[in-house]
Design a protein around this nucleic acid. Structure first.
Length: 202
DNA sequence: CGAATGATCGGCT
DNA sequence: GCCGATCATTCGA
């Protein structure tokens, strides 16, 4: 078990990082309670030339400011008023790249995840979908800007030695970003082949 | 200051 | 499968 360090996040190729994140573990510790899930679906957003990215054309506001930080920070965005979407800021300082975590597989402390989601049975709804997994893991907008690499950080990622082969990665177009025109066609959404916990394929 | 806009989910049919 | 909820952030007046 190895916590991912800054050098993992600060690489230039955000698409490659998005692929590398598959099979890694997302872990949170709030109030001494640990919950963890295996990442099975990600989506890449590349700041300068991606219309779907909030920081497209280096549009810099208070909200997107965190995306310009060095890789290894959390960017939590509230969507549709209800859903907390967890992104990992990547790239070097002033490179507004980010990766959206779309789905995880529940691994540790499933009981607490169920409680947080107000569910009694384990269903794919527990952690499939970007808004669901953040609720299950207890991530909220107030965690935006959190470091994922600091020693005392409540949110971090682990490599547990599971290698994901290129042939087991499925690339597909991103969804929900029709306004981004031609950029919506880029195959920057990645999921693990056969992952039951990924949100359903379109 | 007010209106428009989403990187979605879950319940109901 | 479809439809409605719901609110921070942004931008224009």
């Amino acid at each position: 078990m190895q916590k991912l360090t800054a050098s993992f996040y600060t690489r230039e190729d955000v698409v490659q990082i998005a692929k590398d994140l598959l099979g890694k573990y997302l872990v949170t510790r709030f109030d001494g309670q640990i919950t963890a899930g295996k990442i099975v679906e990600t989506e890449a957003y590349r700041g300068p030339d991606d219309k779907a990215c909030h920081a497209w054309m280096n549009r810099r506001t208070n909200r997107t400011e965190i995306m310009f930080a060095e890789g290894g920070h959390a960017y939590v965005y509230l969507c549709y008023g209800i859903h907390h979407l967890f992104n990992i800021v990547s790239g070097k300082k002033d490179m507004a790249h980010a990766i959206l975590i779309r789905a995880v597989e529940p691994v540790e402390n499933v009981e607490l995840m169920l409680k947080r989601r107000n569910l009694t049975k384990i269903t794919p709804r527990l952690t499939a979908g970007p808004g669901s997994l953040t609720q299950a893991l207890g991530i909220r907008t107030e965690h935006t800007g959190q470091s994922l690499v600091a020693d005392d950080s409540p949110i971090w990622l682990e490599d547990r030695g599971e290698e994901v082969l290129e042939e087991n990665i499925i690339a597909s177009p991103r969804v929900g970003i029709g306004y981004a025109e031609e950029c919506a066609l880029w195959d920057w959404r990645f999921r693990m082949r056969g992952a039951k916990w990924a949100s359903p394929a379109k």
